[in-house]
Design a protein around this nucleic acid. Structure first.
Lengths: 193, 193
DNA sequence: CGTGGCATGTAAACGGTTACATGATTTA
DNA sequence: TAAATCATGTAACCGTTTACATGCCACG
């Protein structure tokens, strides 16, 4: 009777909007909490079965297709979700491969670190753009939805942290480019610090 | 012949300083990259065995104790580490339970969200303090170490993002407290901040 | 003499991803 | 009618955590 966190995202997504299929739920996760959470089908479909067998969600026939299986959250499911929401959140052990490589970067040439940071900047700029799009469109598409203020808050934290990372990247690149000049192969040996 | 990322942290830690034991490595990870990476003993010890059997590290007897098993990175190990460092980094799928709970917070009372944010602020303030300590002490303890500039960069990103999160938290709390007042729920005067 | 830190390990269980298999339905 | 997308599912595999077991060694 213990649930993985996948179960709660699924429950949550069905609480936000009923009559979703496994496929829908995956897409909804991608589109709404994709910046900070992900799930695969291999996780979602078994979870759906399990939640249904426990009465936390209930399968309903789809008007669109016989193949498609839609679900609704039950009252028991809502209770379960609310209990979990009120529990203290746990910090997942962070795993940032970028930072790990940067940490050991003195083993390789400064260009490697510079390359990684540039790549990070590119990814963060892209992330920033999509978040800006969402920021613009979400209020219009979800006017009146009680979830909206919270959705905007999650977006706000994502944007704030991404902005901070972008700023850091800029100064970090500047720093490394001087460091590269100081120890790089293109500089005569006598000019080293 | 494919290695998990655990192998590379271990290799990296032995590249930074030789003659470390599994226990040492764990502590070193905690102390230096703990903000963005973690490993458990159940992962470290088997990895050590495997790397040794592949000749990427080599066990050396300890002068301190017969029980203690120290390791050094080999030339092959260094090559392997450098290759990995140059490879593009992968973004791990982020999993932020705090944001997930905040996203679904309209299912529960605003106080729940407020409580979570306050808790986040507390954790971030603590993290900020330890990072500030490290920022102050690291340069003195590692003067001349070629890794130092990179270590400070990783610390810098951690601090920048934590600062951004702290700022966000402040405005988010302000916002939610008005939202709480607007929805009719009265708060006893003594409970306000 | 006891406590806390040093030190090494393993087995079971878990959570999760990947790759694969299959086919219906919509749209260009 | 071809391509894209919708849609469901599973089995194998992997990395990781947890809990447990053991015992040394230094210090107060």
């Amino acid at each position: 009777m213990k649930h993985s966190r996948t179960a709660f995202v699924v429950l949550g997504m069905l609480a936000v909007e009923p009559r979703r299929s496994g496929y829908d739920i995956r897409k909804a996760i991608e589109a709404s909490v994709g910046h900070f959470w992900g799930e695969s089908y291999g996780q979602i479909y078994p979870t759906l079965k399990r939640l249904a067998s426990e009465g936390l969600i209930e399968p309903v026939p789809s008007p669109r297709s016989k193949r498609r299986q839609e679900y609704c959250i039950t009252e028991a499911g809502r209770v379960c979700l609310r209990e979990w929401l009120a529990l203290p959140f746990q910090n997942d052990r962070p795993r940032n491969e970028f930072l790990l490589k940067l940490f050991f970067a003195s083993e390789v040439s400064p260009q490697v670190a510079i390359g990684h940071i540039r790549e990070l900047q590119a990814r963060n700029r892209r992330a920033m753009e999509t978040m800006e799009q969402i920021e613009k469109l979400a209020p219009k598409m979800n006017a009146g939805n009680p979830g909206l203020p919270y959705w905007m808050l999650t977006l706000g934290l994502g944007m704030a942290m991404t902005r901070a990372a972008l700023d850091w990247g800029q100064t970090a690149l500047a720093e490394l480019e001087t460091l590269e000049g100081a120890s790089g192969a293109s500089v005569p040996a006598g000019h080293r610090t």
